[in-house]
Design a protein around this nucleic acid. Structure first.
Length: 702
DNA sequence: CTTAATATGAGTCCCACC
DNA sequence: GGTGGGACTCATATTAAG
């Protein structure tokens, strides 16, 4: 509520301060330095750093070159002045500490996973609120004065939140463990010498408020801020989890979102007041926007947001003579083995590709529209560490116009329909009712219909990808036409228990979430782990769910486009490849490699949908593959142990390929376009997790 | 129960125009 | 530079039918 946060107060909030950025650094990049490369300017801490440090001084450069992040350097300089030794000491101390904490966290995660301690789980699911209430009793300052509690906050236990449910059962031992654990986890959120950076400044805005005057939502924000959670994260979590969400759910969500932390400032948040979020989320997000307003100059967003190229030809396509970028620099940490290749929709909400890129070594995405390869448009972004020289297309070249691809339509194609390419094939097709309306509208006139009718018909045809199949008759594409247009063998998705609707969905790359669907385990602390365990149990109970739709992505992202990018591997792996294929869907990556003539020695494929796994298995057998196809149904199954086992058994992966779910990113989604933190799309972080694991295991073995 | 059919916008970019 | 219109989008929820 605005009245609780005056404009003046908001101005004083340092929304993404050093501290918070450091969290991200600590948590995720301690093992892999996400070093800035110029395009990765840290916003938000601008005031802090610029006040003490001139923008691009050689003094800073010196440390940048060493691989320290910009915000760390700024902080160190702020504390130590421009004394090289002191600054270096501070940076090294932090880095060592980060690595140590990261290792500790991993160990703890493993430990907890093994334990599956039931009452600990209970605590997380039910008891956390109670325990917090209990703990709060020893904080007399809280109820009488919010500011008191806040001032004491960093090292102390969480304070009470008045809206919390009364205690039902409280387990001292488990709660103590949890508290300690949380302390450990969140301690690293700040510099050892300066723990009151972000959270405190964020809290400052609440200090002036009487807790009694706060809304329930703000009380929750205050409470979680006291626990050390950054306010932004809390707001987003509350918005995503809904007003009734328990603290456990909120903290779980926040932990899950940690990996994307740095991007929040770049997310849709502020560029426009309107946001691409589900129905319910809009108003809530709007409030959050207002809180965030006046935080950062707009220019920062504009500079940081990755722009789509025009024309969308990435680093080059075989059919255009437009000079393409062939030279690019890939950060050292991004080099393989293994090669990796990531894919998702190009037209994701603002800031999403910044986030994705940042988690994939700041590699610039390659945005390509498949209309340069075939008769169907499909705008996708790819991030990979493959060479871009000497690519070659699959032969024979696919038909490049609608008429070539669907010759029977030529006869009926009216002269006033200028389309030569189809739009993106989606999961839903035009209805019979619509095609009938179109028939009647066109039939009503001899010869060319008037412009008004033409426009109506063309709009609908573009929207639903309708083609002319008879006099005045339009129709949606058939599934086998989808297959052909996308580069799959005919009947690839036919039979084997798949319905026609599911064929469209698989081919259109759709995802369906159902209760208990995969919840990602990130690097985040144990709350996630706990929830995952719960979900696993629930999933077991529902193990007979049928017709589960795919968590597939890369899969049919136009075989020709993907194959063009992967073609550089052919000469590099004359003896074949070992491939880890995440979110395999109907096997687009496998089909692309096969069609390139690259031998598939071992393919580990992860795909949620049984139907899709069957499709890939069936294709594997029909094409007489000699290698091994190992499939998993859940990315969660690929933990460190499992990956190590797999890598041991055949000596490592040559390629990690996959595209994470786009459900919450895709423009067609009118319901839950929640961005990268959405239910399905957040599985992106599993891609990152697995990539990191594979790289680290393989580097150990070298 | 499964399958099929149908209805359901908004976010974002681009570009002409002022 | 601002703005308004055009174009496009790896989807989901509900209802009907079998």
């Amino acid at each position: 509520m605005d009245k609780h946060l005056s404009e003046e107060d908001s101005d004083n909030i340092d929304w993404d301060t050093e501290d918070e950025l450091e969290i991200q650094d600590t948590t995720f990049s301690s093992c892999r330095d996400l070093r800035t490369n110029g395009q990765y300017a840290i916003s938000g801490d601008g005031e802090a750093s610029s006040s003490s440090v001139p923008g691009e001084s050689t003094f800073i450069q010196k440390f940048l070159v060493m691989g320290f992040s910009e915000e760390s350097i700024a902080k160190a300089i702020e504390q130590n002045g421009e004394n090289s030794d002191l600054v270096l000491d501070a940076l090294l101390t932090l880095k060592v500490r980060n690595v140590f904490l990261f290792i500790c966290k991993l160990l703890i995660l493993d430990f907890v996973a093994c334990l599956q301690a039931v009452h600990f789980l209970d605590f997380v699911t039910k008891g956390v609120d109670c325990e917090i209430n209990d703990a709060s009793c020893s904080l007399p300052g809280f109820h009488s004065s919010g500011s008191k509690a806040i001032e004491d906050s960093p090292e102390e236990q969480p304070s009470a939140s008045p809206h919390l449910e009364p205690c039902i059962n409280s387990d001292d031992s488990s709660s103590e463990y949890n508290e300690n654990f949380l302390d450990d986890v969140y301690e690293e959120d700040s510099w050892s010498s300066d723990s009151d950076y972000c959270t405190n400044s964020a809290k400052q805005c609440y200090v002036k408020e009487e807790s009694s005057s706060l809304s329930e939502k703000e009380q929750t924000i205050l409470f979680l801020a006291n626990m050390g959670y950054p306010v932004e994260e809390v707001s987003i979590a509350m918005e995503r989890c809904g007003p009734e969400a328990s603290l456990a759910e909120l903290t779980d969500f926040i932990c899950a979102a940690q990996m994307a932390r740095a991007e929040d400032p770049y997310l849709p948040e502020d560029v426009k007041p309107k946001l691409n979020h589900g129905n319910g989320g809009y108003k809530k997000r709007k409030m959050f926007n207002q809180l965030c307003k006046s935080k950062k100059p707009r220019a920062i967003f504009d500079e940081e947001t990755i722009r789509l190229p025009k024309p969308m030809i990435g680093f080059g396509v075989p059919t255009e003579s437009v000079p393409a970028i062939v030279q690019r620099t890939i950060p050292e940490q991004a080099f393989g083995p293994p090669f990796f290749y990531y894919e998702n929709v190009a037209l994701a909400p603002k800031g999403v590709w910044d986030t994705i890129s940042r988690f994939l070594y700041d590699i610039e995405p390659e945005f390509v529209d498949s209309k340069y390869f075939c008769a169907t448009a499909r705008k996708r972004g790819y991030i990979h560490n493959l060479p871009t020289e000497n690519r070659f297309p699959l032969l024979p070249l696919p038909p490049r116009t609608i008429n070539e691809a669907l010759p029977l339509t030529k006869k009926w194609w009216p002269s006033w329909d200028p389309r030569t390419k189809l739009n993106c094939l989606q999961t839903a097709i035009g209805s019979a009712r619509l095609t009938d309306r179109i028939r009647k509208a066109v039939e009503a006139f001899d010869g060319e219909p008037p412009m008004r009718v033409q426009k109506f018909v063309l709009d609908q045809c573009r929207k639903w990808n309708l083609v002319w199949v008879g006099r005045n008759k339009v129709a949606p594409l058939e599934p086998d036409e989808f297959e052909m247009l996308l580069g799959f063998p005919k009947n690839h998705t036919r039979g084997g228990g798949i319905s026609r609707t599911d064929r469209y969905k698989s081919l259109g790359n759709s995802f369906q979430s159902y209760p208990g669907a995969t919840l990602s385990v990130r690097f985040a602390p144990t709350l996630n782990q706990q929830k995952t365990l719960r979900h696993r149990e629930q999933r077991l109970e529902r193990s007979f769910v049928t017709s589960v739709i795919p968590h597939c992505a890369i899969v049919n992202s136009m075989v020709d486009t993907v194959a063009y990018h992967l073609s550089v591997l052919k000469d590099m792996f004359p003896n074949g490849m070992n491939v880890l294929s995440l979110f395999s869907g109907i096997g687009g990556a496998e089909v692309a490699l096969y069609r390139l003539g690259i031998q598939l020695n071992n393919v580990v494929s992860v795909e949620k949908s049984e139907v899709n796994r069957n499709i890939v298995r069936s294709w594997w057998e029909q094409t007489n593959q000699r290698g091994n196809l190992i499939d998993f149904d859940d990315v969660q199954q690929l933990n460190g142990d499992r990956l190590e086992q797999l890598i041991d058994s055949f000596g490592g992966f040559d390629l990690l390929i996959g595209g994470s779910p786009c459900n919450n990113l895709a423009g067609s989604n009118r319901v839950s376009r929640d961005g990268l933190e959405g239910k399905e799309s957040s599985l992106f972080y599993d891609y990152v997790r697995i990539l990191d694991l594979v790289k680290s295991i393989m580097s150990r073995q070298r």
